[in-house]
Design a protein around this nucleic acid. Structure first.
Lengths: 347, 347
DNA sequence: GCGCGCTACTAGCGCGCTCTAGGCGAGTAC
DNA sequence: GTACTCGCCTAGAGCGCGCTAGTAGCGCGC
């Protein structure tokens, strides 16, 4: 009296029970004109009684379109979580369904995308894709594709990202104005936006005549990376090399890792050292004194991504576009003037 | 020359181009006997050439079963990320597809579940469901359901969770053995497992004759909650009430928030205060000295969840079951003896 | 010659739905 | 009266696939 024996009710069941044709039930469920209010009511009531729910597979098959957007993301990226949260409501508003596919250990981007395509997503939104530009371009030729957080210069894809240079510049101005000179940058490796951030960091250092202090420490967009850098810096300090007075991290996760290591080692933030992150993911609010970070508006980015996809699909905008959002430095508690006397590099 | 005009190739296209029948293509793609190696090769080659990929909607419709497991999770829960990572490989191993549906701001559990059912998931795996037991029971009557991280006593659902009591007991033994007496617990509110953890904390305090020190601070499973508790404790200290010497947090996120607040305020961990978390999510490894926490094996839990669902679906285990995994205290750096002289409550 | 079993393949129905092309009756215009 | 519209409803094709039943061809034994 349960489980596998229980057949899922179909439209035909509803139709029969309500004494109408299948087509009429279809009309009612698609909220289309062509059914009297009474019939509509009766159909809905009967459907509810027998627990009918439209089968999206069949529906999808029947009408040519799936009205589904596929989203590839990484489970462990808080900023992706923020983006996903923004994607749902915008997609719903435009009448699209959302399918998530995560990359994870042992499940690469290719696999995640494959799954989305198999489910007939009309468009694919890639959050911080790490794939080669040529692969992304290939995907873009096969289906409407949006890359979020990463520019893919000559590929046939829409892209939504922030003006990395601008964000880094703001952060650097902020630090320099506070009096910092010994500012290091933790690199984001192949992570989205890293190259631009690195470039902008270098340029800013040069512009302020700080070229001798310029230092890029290799890393990536994980807490792990921030912690390793922290340990590295502490280790160097113990061997006589002074700590930098400020660190521009590759992203918030990296900044978090760094902070944990440093504060646990008794380094005062921002007393002894300032830290600036990048993303303004949920993480940054969570710190007691707040992480100074470059805000990327996740909700806005999500909205652009969804709209780009939908407009391409519906032919409103046949050509791929690029949205470059203005980042905004959000000064919170992890940045302040460099320690007295140190000045930040005047040896 | 792009986009909507480009029709997705179907089996018929492959068949025609390879000079065989549709059925044969179907056979090849389902990896079934009944096609010669040469034909098989040719079909696959042709399919690859024209970029054919089986349409899962149609496939799902045609064979009665979808072989799809739906997973409801919360984007911002790191432990859910760990679970999702474990679910994918196990599902794949058993030949099932995975569909994710996130709860988020403005997208409650009901909506997330609705989406899964609409996509014909045969079973639903709920990660840390917050819904009312009766609603979960109702769902369990409609479809195979597995609750992960939360017991749902009289409901028709499988469940996978850890022996909360045991975990808390271990943590408490550990703290008491170190010499702690003033141990407070931050509650997890309606979060999964909270009630059991709270109960176990109370019992442990009583068993060790620490009833006078017993204190449960309301909270939930977020960093926010940990931070608020931290501020509360610091505030109390400033008004003369001594800090507890140890805190048993509701989960790792909460412990993280607490840690951030305390260490930033100059409280040494574990010098002045010990902190124990719960989950052993990725977070706990990320701290420089490591979070002492009660390990819930995410991978194992994920495997149980998937297997329970599949075995119910395939009739191997018609009745819902419960897996209670043994948690294991993982001692890392945030726990140590209480500060000298304080002893931990001997006023 | 015949039947037999086996491999390699095909015809065609049906999954649950959407959607086009209508049907039917009542009202309105001439 | 005929002609037409309009609201409500139905018949039935077909979406891309899986699958059952069946066919063609071939070697084999007698």
């Amino acid at each position: 009296m349960d489980g596998s024996g229980k057949q899922r009710p179909t439209m035909a069941d509803v139709a029969e029970r309500a004494g109408v044709s299948r087509a009429l039930v279809s009309i009612v469920f698609r909220d289309q004109p062509g059914a009297s209010p009474q019939t509509r009511d009766r159909v809905l009531r009967v459907a509810d009684e027998i627990g009918y729910r439209p089968d999206s597979a069949a529906r999808l098959l029947a009408r040519g379109r799936s009205r589904t957007l596929g989203v590839m993301f990484t489970v462990h990226q808080p900023f992706h979580a923020d983006l996903v949260e923004g994607i749902y409501p915008e997609a719903e508003r435009l009448g699209y369904d959302v399918l998530l596919s995560a990359t994870a250990q042992g499940r690469g981007e290719a696999k995640a995308i494959e799954a989305l395509l198999g489910h007939r997503c009309e468009a694919v939104i890639l959050l911080g894709p790490g794939a080669q530009p040529k692969d992304i371009d290939a995907l873009g030729h096969r289906t409407v594709t949006v890359s979020v957080g990463r520019r893919v210069p000559h590929a046939r894809v829409d892209s939504v990202h922030t003006a990395e240079g601008k964000g880094v510049r703001q952060a650097m101005e902020h630090l320099v104005e506070l009096g910092h000179r010994r500012i290091v940058h933790i690199d984001g490796g192949r992570g989205p936006g890293s190259a631009e951030r690195r470039r902008a960091y270098r340029a800013a250092m040069r512009r302020h005549g700080l070229e001798p202090e310029l230092r890029v420490i290799p890393g990536d967009h994980t807490e792990q990376s921030g912690m390793e850098t922290g340990r590295l810096l502490l280790d160097e300090r113990d061997h006589g090399r002074p700590l930098p007075t400020a660190v521009l991290a590759g992203n918030d996760r990296c900044a978090m890792g760094l902070l944990m290591t440093l504060t646990q080692a008794g380094v005062g933030v921002p007393r002894d050292l300032s830290v600036v992150g990048y993303d303004d993911s949920h993480l940054s609010h969570l710190m007691p004194i707040g992480l100074t970070t470059v805000r990327q508006d996740a909700v806005l980015m999500a909205e652009y991504a969804v709209r780009f996809a939908v407009e391409r699909l519906e032919g409103t905008a046949p050509e791929p576009r690029e949205a470059v959002l203005d980042p905004k430095l959000t000064v919170r508690g992890t940045s302040g003037p460099p320690p007295e006397g140190v000045g930040g590099g005047n040896r």
